[in-house]
């Protein structure tokens, strides 16, 4: 399979995703404008960071006056998954020189990771793995950054009375509900404990409640998983 064929296959598989990322990009742009970022920052954010969830989180935190350290820690937490994706995909994209690999990494999204790993696992004989990855990732980048740019100008034109900034928590609410709906016991523990701690710790200064809640949720999830596993295989062998 040639590079061209691989890239076209990736593009075809990405078409439904392009439709799905358009509203998300728009929301990212609108939110940046609604929170009051200058236009250059609001547009630039989507190009240099290119990670919607962490961008919206940063905007929400900026809106409530969080210090930059808390925003960066939140970015780290929300984007840690990319290191995992990077580890998963790396064996398949060893061909190009490292600057090209770094550029490919910059285009990494949840969607490009999901499509690429599925295709590498189900159709390994087709090859052209780098081409496929780029065939998915480049169009997603173009569509998302364009939507975000349009969103900034749309958002700037919307009157404040519409409280469009409320769209940000609604987006996170959707993502959260979908994560919980997909998950099982330990995931519910992680989400539930974190929510309770976040509400209780909201009066803490510097938005520290967010980090406290996130780590409490992680601990709850890992603990619930460990307890579940111990219940499933009582005394499996002697350790």
């Amino acid at each position: 399979m040639t590079f061209r064929d691989g890239a076209l296959e990736g593009f075809r598989d990405a078409i439904p995703i392009l439709l799905a990322v358009t509203p998300f990009g728009l929301v990212a742009g609108v939110s940046a404008a609604e929170v009051g970022l200058p236009v250059a920052h609001a547009v630039g954010m989507s190009y240099v960071v290119y990670a919607g969830t962490s961008q919206l989180a940063a905007l929400q935190l900026l809106a409530v006056g969080s210090p930059f350290a808390v925003i960066l820690l939140t970015t780290l937490l929300l984007n840690l998954r990319f290191a995992l994706y990077s580890a998963t995909l790396a064996p398949h994209v060893r061909g190009p020189a490292w600057p090209v690999r770094l550029w490919m990494a910059a285009l990494m999204t949840d969607q490009s990771m999901a499509l690429s790993t599925h295709r590498y696992a189900t159709k390994p004989e087709r090859g052209a793995k780098v081409a496929y990855y780029l065939g998915v990732s480049v169009p997603v980048w173009i569509v998302w950054t364009t939507a975000a740019t349009v969103g900034v100008f749309v958002g700037a034109a919307v009157p404040d009375a519409w409280s469009l900034e409320f769209a940000v928590p609604l987006v996170f609410l959707t993502l959260w509900v979908l994560v919980l709906a997909r998950g099982r016991g330990p995931v519910w523990w992680a989400g539930g404990v974190s929510a309770v701690v976040a509400i209780a710790a909201r009066p803490l200064p510097f938005n520290l409640g967010l980090l406290l809640a996130a780590f409490a949720g992680l601990a709850a999830g890992v603990t619930a998983e460990a307890l579940r596993d111990r219940r499933r295989e009582p005394r499996a062998g002697s350790r």
Partner: peptide, 26 residues
């Protein structure tokens, strides 16, 4: 341990952002 905890990052971090945006009691 980090690899295991990563599975719970979305649920935990999203909850920490969402909950105080909707429920503001002290």
């Amino acid at each position: 341990l980090v690899r295991r905890a990563l599975d719970y990052v979305p649920a935990a971090v999203l909850a920490a952002i969402v909950a105080p945006a909707f429920v503001q009691v002290a």
